[in-house]
Amino acid sequence: MNRVFIVGYGDIGQRVAQRWLQTDAEVFALGRNVDVADSAITPLRADLDRPQTLADLPTQAAVIYYFAPPPAEGERDTRLENFLGAVSGAALPRRIIYISTSGVYGDRRGAWVTEATAPQPDTPRAQRRLAAELALQTWAKRYDVPCVILRVGGIYGPGRLPLERLRQGLPVLRRDLAPPTNRIHADDLAHICQAAAAAPGMRPIYNVCDDQASTMSDYFIAVAEHAGLPRPREIDWQQAEAEFSPTMLSYLRESRRMDTSKLHRELDVELRYPRLEQGLAACLAES
C-alpha cells in the first residue's frame, strides 16, 4: 500500500494524507482547486464534473479515498460515476474507500441500526449518497476491486465546531425533545479511514461514530460549556419550526443510534476520543 490517492482534499483528506505519509506512502491529492502545503504530496487538479479532465490518473494499484461530495441536485452522484469511468481498465486501484453518511438509514426514531439494516433515506442528499454506494459496489464487483463503505455520523473537530452559531445566540431544541444522534471526531475518522485499507472481505460496510449516543442539543450545549460561551436557549418544536433552517429541521427529524460493534471487531479500532467531552477538550486546546 505504497500509493495513496485522495479525491476531495478537505479536512479529512488532509488528516488521512498525513497518516499515510508517516508510512512513507506516495500520496496524491485530487481536486478542482487543490492546495497542498506539504511538498511530499502530489497535487492533481481536475474537475469531477468534467470527465475530460480525469485522463491518465495515477491510480493503478493505489488505495483510493473518495471524499468528494455528490452534486447538490439530482438522483445520482455523477461525480463519482465520472471518476470510476476514468479509473477503469489499466488504471484499476487496489481498493476504494468511500465516505458515505448515516443518513442513508433514514429516520429510525432512535432505534439502533447495524450494517444489516436496510437503507431507507428520507432526504435527497442521503438518496444521492445511497445511489453512490450502489454505483461503487456495482463497479467494484464488475472489476473485482475491493471497496469499503463508511457510513459516518456527524463529524466534529478543530475548526468544525459551531462556535459562531453559539456566539450569535441561536437556540437549540429543548433537550427532552431532541432525538438521538451520532458523531465522530475528525482524528478518529482519519484513523478509521487508514485502518479500512486492510478491511477483510470484498465490499464491507461499517457504521462509524464514537461510543456516546447523545443529541444535537447536547452537542451544542457541551460546546458552549467547553468554550466558555453562553448556554444556548432551548425552544420547543413549534418555535423550532419557525426559527430553524430547513436543513437544521431535516437533521432533527431524523433519529437513530448506530451500532459500531462490526467496526471494532473487524478493524480493531481504538478511538482516541470515544466520548464527546474528550474530543471537545482536545479541539479547544488546539484552537
Rank of each mutant, 00 (worst) to 15 (best):
N2W: 07
N2G: 11
N2D: 13
V7W: 06
D11P: 09
D11L: 12
G13F: 05
G13K: 09
Q14C: 11
Q22E: 15
T23I: 10
F28P: 01
F28E: 00
A29D: 00
N33Q: 15
N33S: 15
V34N: 04
V36K: 03
A40I: 10
I41P: 01
T42C: 15
L44G: 01
D47L: 05
L54M: 04
A55M: 14
D56L: 11
L57T: 01
T59F: 00
A61M: 11
V63C: 14
I64L: 14
I64S: 05
Y66K: 04
F67N: 02
F67A: 01
A68P: 03
A72I: 10
E73D: 12
D77M: 12
D77P: 09
D77G: 13
R79S: 08
L80M: 12
E81T: 11
L84R: 00
L84Y: 00
G85Q: 07
V87S: 00
G89C: 03
G89A: 03
L92I: 03
R94V: 02
T101L: 07
T101Y: 07
T101W: 05
G106A: 01
D107M: 08
V113F: 12
T114H: 05
A116E: 14
T117Q: 08
P119V: 08
Q120S: 13
D122Y: 10
P124W: 03
P124E: 00
R125M: 06
A126P: 07
Q127I: 06
L130C: 09
L130A: 09
A131Q: 07
A131Y: 02
L134K: 12
L136T: 00
Q137A: 14
W139L: 08
A140K: 02
K141C: 12
K141P: 10
R142I: 10
P146M: 06
P146Q: 07
I149C: 09
Y156F: 14
G159I: 08
R160Y: 13
L163A: 08
L166H: 10
R167S: 04
R167L: 05
Q168F: 06
G169F: 06
P171T: 03
P171M: 06
P171H: 03
V172D: 01
V172N: 02
R175Y: 09
D176W: 14
L177W: 13
A178F: 04
A178N: 10
A178C: 14
P180E: 00
I184A: 00
I184R: 02
I184Q: 02
A186V: 13
A186H: 06
A190N: 03
H191Q: 13
I192H: 02
Q194T: 15
A197V: 03
A199S: 11
A199N: 04
P200H: 11
G201R: 03
M202P: 11
M202Q: 15
R203T: 13
P204C: 06
P204S: 09
I205E: 01
I205K: 01
Y206Q: 02
V208R: 01
D210P: 08
T215S: 15
S217W: 03
D218P: 04
Y219L: 02
F220V: 10
I221D: 11
A222Q: 10
V223P: 07
R233L: 12
D236G: 13
W237C: 07
E241D: 10
A242L: 14
S250C: 04
Y251W: 13
Y251N: 09
E254D: 08
E254A: 09
R256I: 11
M258W: 03
T260N: 12
K262F: 05
K262E: 13
L263C: 02
D268F: 05
E270Y: 10
L271A: 03
Y273K: 00
P274R: 08
C283I: 05
S287R: 13
